[in-house]
Amino acid sequence: MAVHFHEEDLPAGVLAGDAPLAVDTETMGLVTRRDRLCIVQISDGGEDEHLVRFAPDSDYAAPNLKALLADTNRVKLYHFARFDLAAIEHYLGVTAAPVFCTKIASKLTRTYTDRHGLKNLVEELLGENLSKQQQSSDWGGADINEAQRDYAASDVRYLHRMREILITRLEREGRTEMAQACFDFLPTRARLDLAGWEEHDIFHHS
């Protein structure tokens, strides 16, 4: 297993094929339009993870990465896709779909708990411990240390295996169709966030 670090784009030909892609982002904060995109993590479920780091003055050209993210033949796996989709669309200008979100799948199947964080899922579904120590670190610095790199890579390392388990649970509970409808709506939900409706439920009566 190796973590590959790239500046501004993926090398050509990396992650070829049609396997689903696990995707995550690291930003300077949680306000997408204010807090710039610093890193995109991506994996095809093999032994390696790839991190693409963007400089403060980046133009976010990244043609190879964008082509992968925009490929409608490859499912993109996320944990809390709503945030990552918005960051990718705002900074990279592509819709990184179709989508499978492990957080939504968890909420639709693990109704016996309110613990739906990535760490919680990895521990329960896979029996592994996921450190979140670097979660609030500075992703915009000149140097990204080994602890940060491993943390970032771990955010995509487990998504393929968890997806398979969650697919089985969705089928067991008769919620596959409902989950897919949620996944299909997520790019629009992200656009609503970017357009200013992040705190407003436009489906609510009031």
Score class of each variant (00 low, 15 high):
143 D>C: 03
149 R>N: 05
175 R>A: 15
151 Y>H: 01
156 V>F: 00
167 I>V: 14
170 L>P: 08
151 Y>L: 07
165 I>W: 01
160 H>K: 10
157 R>W: 07
176 T>Q: 12
164 E>K: 08
155 D>Q: 04
144 I>S: 01
144 I>K: 00
144 I>L: 15
169 R>N: 13
166 L>G: 03
147 A>R: 12
153 A>N: 07
147 A>Y: 10
164 E>P: 01
144 I>C: 07
159 L>F: 10
171 E>I: 09
169 R>Y: 12
152 A>R: 09
161 R>Y: 10
145 N>F: 08
165 I>H: 05
150 D>A: 07
162 M>E: 04
154 S>M: 10
174 G>P: 04
151 Y>N: 02
152 A>Y: 05
169 R>M: 15
172 R>Y: 12
152 A>E: 14
165 I>Y: 00
175 R>C: 13
161 R>L: 13
153 A>S: 09
163 R>P: 07
155 D>V: 10
145 N>S: 05
175 R>S: 11
149 R>Y: 14
163 R>D: 07
170 L>C: 04
157 R>N: 02
150 D>H: 04
156 V>T: 12
144 I>P: 01
155 D>F: 05
157 R>S: 11
159 L>R: 02
168 T>C: 06
144 I>D: 00
152 A>S: 07
166 L>R: 01
158 Y>K: 02
160 H>Q: 10
151 Y>A: 03
149 R>M: 14
154 S>W: 06
161 R>G: 05
167 I>P: 01
161 R>P: 02
154 S>C: 13
158 Y>I: 08
163 R>T: 03
150 D>L: 11
172 R>L: 15
176 T>F: 08
161 R>F: 07
149 R>Q: 15
147 A>M: 06
150 D>V: 11
163 R>K: 14
167 I>S: 03
149 R>A: 03
157 R>Q: 15
171 E>K: 09
165 I>G: 00
165 I>P: 00
168 T>L: 13
154 S>F: 05
150 D>Y: 01
173 E>K: 10
156 V>S: 01
148 Q>C: 06
146 E>F: 04
145 N>Y: 09
161 R>S: 13
144 I>Q: 00
170 L>D: 06
151 Y>D: 03
164 E>I: 05
167 I>M: 04
162 M>F: 06
